[in-house]
Each structure stands twice: as structure tokens, then as C-alpha cells.
């Protein structure tokens, strides 16, 4: 005997759109070092500047652990001065030549990263990584 057809029904529970679990480290830009770097390479006068309210604020560097394995997968800069969210590319040293896999970053490391705006300007940052989650000492 055939079953009775009932309308297909989908119910979403605990729906949290686009919410990722943050990795357990953070970083803020050493704005003095970074402004000196921009001056040295001639970009400071072109509006490539760093300040405490933007990249210097640790809350503005958001590190994502997309698969919740305790290892960072990507970093973006939020709270920019009208530039929207910017993807960060992390490097091993101040020459900004070798891209560093974000998964290798751990608290205590000094990291270098760049952000690029849609108008072509590129910022060079430096910062010391600090731990944000003391409940999970075995993680990042």
C-alpha cells in the first residue's frame, strides 16, 4: 500500500549564518614599525598609514578556524577606515617575500602581513601573536 504524500518540510535548528569559531590567537599591528616601513618604501605620503584605531586594534584582526580544528585557516582585517574587510596575507619576515601558511602561526611569533585595498594600495604590517584562549593550552 502506498504512503500518503506529505508536503516536504525543512526546519533549521541553531541556525547561525556564516559564523565560524575563532582560533585561539590574536594579533595587532605594531603601528610605529609599520608607519616607518611605509615611509621607508615611499607609500606613507600616498595614504598608506597605520593607526591604533584600525589595524592597531587587536579586535580588528579576525582569525578564522573554519573547520574548528584549533588551527587558523585565514585572517581578515575588519574595522578599516572605509575600506571594508581586507584579506591578510602572512609572510615569514620583513622582506614580505615568502608567504607563510597561517596554520604555522602560534602565540609568541612575530608575523608580517599585508592587506590590499581595491584601489591598489597595499599595507605592510608587523605584529606579535598573543594567546586569546587560555582554556585550550594545547591548541594554537
Amino acid at each position: 500500500m502506498k504512503q500518503k504524500w506529505i508536503r516536504p518540510q525543512t526546519t533549521i535548528e541553531k541556525f547561525v549564518p556564516d559564523e565560524y569559531i575563532a582560533a585561539c590567537w590574536g594579533v595587532c599591528c605594531d603601528t610605529d614599525w609599520s608607519n616607518n616601513y611605509e615611509e621607508w618604501q615611499g607609500d606613507y605620503s600616498k595614504g598608506v598609514t597605520h593607526d591604533a584605531a584600525h589595524c592597531g586594534n587587536p579586535s580588528n584582526q579576525v582569525i578564522f578556524d573554519d573547520d574548528d580544528d584549533g588551527i587558523a585557516d585565514r585572517m581578515i582585517e575588519t574595522g578599516t577606515d572605509g575600506l571594508g574587510n581586507l584579506n591578510c596575507t602572512i609572510y615569514w619576515n620583513e622582506s614580505f617575500s615568502g608567504i607563510r601558511n597561517i596554520a604555522s602561526v602560534k602565540p609568541g611569533d612575530i608575523i608580517y602581513w599585508t592587506t590590499r585595498a581595491s584601489d591598489g594600495r597595499e599595507w605592510n604590517h608587523k605584529g606579535t601573536v598573543f594567546r586569546t584562549n587560555y582554556d585550550r593550552p594545547n591548541h594554537s
Binding site: I6, P8, Q9, T11, V16, P17, E19, Y20
Partner: peptide, 13 residues
């Protein structure tokens, strides 16, 4: 799929 949630479905789905 950027969705942290579980999706209940009925027998038809």
C-alpha cells in the same frame, strides 16, 4: 556552505 546548524527534515524530504 556557511551554515552552522542542523536541518530537521521530514520523511518526504
Amino acid at each position: 556552505i556557511t551554515m552552522n546548524g542542523l536541518i530537521d527534515i521530514n520523511s518526504t524530504v
